[in-house]
Amino acid sequence: MNKIIAILILLLPISSFGAELVRLKHAVSVYADGAGVVLKQPEGVDCNDQSGFIIADSGNGRLLPYRFEEGIVKPAKEIKIPELSYPVAVKMNSKGEVFALDGIKRRILRIGSEGAFKGYVDATDLPASAAVMPRSFTLDNQGNFFVLDIFSGRVLVLSPEGKFLRQVDFSPDSRFISDVAVDRKGAILLIDSVLGEVFSAGKDEAVFVPFSKGLKEYVDFPVSVTADSEGRVLDELLDVRGHVVLQLGHR
């Protein structure tokens, strides 16, 4: 039950009945690292705007960076450190630093661009409810962290150094939130796996409101949400035998 890491090229949107449609075209699938060692149950992937992407090869306890240029995938040196035993989510910032959520420690690690462990991203100066259980996380363009804290039912917004900036509590109508994303305008997006809904909170807003409904018609138990650089919200279900990517519109 491995997921395939597929690179999809976003084609120009076409209009249909007034609604914008995004088409994705398969470019290449990534199965292994540069030495031919295959991926094992990878659970995370991230890309930057410099043709780089990185895979959390969870089953092998490592991160695999690559570059995708002119249609060719070029693997780079794997990142395998003793502090990271089971990466389940990975993000890159604009400085080339890598951040990974360890599924066993349930802490976010900071890794330098050269692949060395730099420490943990632990929230400091937290207000009441210091208990944090990160289920997922993401970064905005300024390097601020958005940590999906399922124990305290909130999204923690932290500075690049981990200092608490603000929090946004989950909507009382939500059931189980699995992933967090931030769009180009700074709005926070959450995917509720049980309800099959996306919730959003605008930048500096204090509450989450429903952004989309009725996803149950298309997906079973969606677990991933992201927003592209054009402001499109993409909701992705990673299913046992395939995946569905839904485009939910612009913010």
Partner: peptide, 13 residues
């Protein structure tokens, strides 16, 4: 808690 995959609701509020 030492397993690779914990049923996430167990770690929720």
């Amino acid at each position: 808690l030492s397993k690779k995959r914990v049923h996430w609701p167990l770690l929720s509020k």
